[in-house]
Amino acid sequence: MHVIEVNNLTKTYGSARGITNLSFQVEQGEIFGFIGPNGAGKSTTIRTLLGLIYPTSGNAKIFGKDCIQYGPEIKKEIGYLPSEVFYYDNMKVKDLLQYSASFYKKDCRKRIAELAGIMDLDLNKKIDDLSLGNKKKVGIVQGLLHEPKLIILDEPTSGLDPLMQQRFFDLLEAENKRGATILFSSHILSEVQRLCDRVAIIKEGKLIQLEKISTLQENNYKRFKLETKAPVSPDYFQLNGVNELKVEGTTVSFLYRGNVNAMMSKIAAIDLANILVEEPDLEEIFMHYYEKED
């Protein structure tokens, strides 16, 4: 059974673009990445799934049921973590979590204590007094306390320090092992790569690519930026796997896919002032998808 099934979903805001004819399925038990630049339509899709906004056309089903018609019923089994967390300021963390738990007809006290322990969250503080990262933790506990079958995360890691991010990912993996399906929206490729089985890439409201992470990783591009002490000839880096080569005097930049050792020994042979090797950002990855389509 598909846990999420999106069929030709379209949402327009007046004349502005939302999402256009989006279709994809999320299978039971998978961690599904949903990536795209800001404004691509990730949040619009998620908000439609949650019944916060209504589709212009098309539909979406969760657990096989229409997400608008059966909204309240399916939300019993959904945990949601919004990208920006704002909660009733004058409440204590404990009270907010209990309020959240009171919507689900089960005893969540034990789970709240467990999750707060894992995320290192002080339950007796006022939400007002929390930092952004700690508010995010409240959001995480709030989204997971009822042991949902489907966890929907909208850019969940902003504001978390690396240690907490790691614990959060461990937590998600544990939830996933327990049987939870996870929809993980992000614009950071590396977190998606680390966690997800499959990934949908969305841009300008349209689905560009739906791939297994393993396939994506084969296309593992690195962006190289070099500053050399003496000008180099553009031909020097003209080898297999190099893309978008730009040479301007002593600065060289290109995208590379292939054996890193070969490239490193090539670079080692020249006199460097500076070097930067980084993951290409999403825009660049998208550029490749466009190129492939052409």
Partner: peptide, 17 residues
């Protein structure tokens, strides 16, 4: 205003409730 609408509306309740 306090941006808590998301909290309430993603709970298993209808808007009428």
């Amino acid at each position: 205003r306090e941006k808590t609408a998301d909290f309430l509306l993603t709970k298993p309740v209808t808007r009428t409730q």
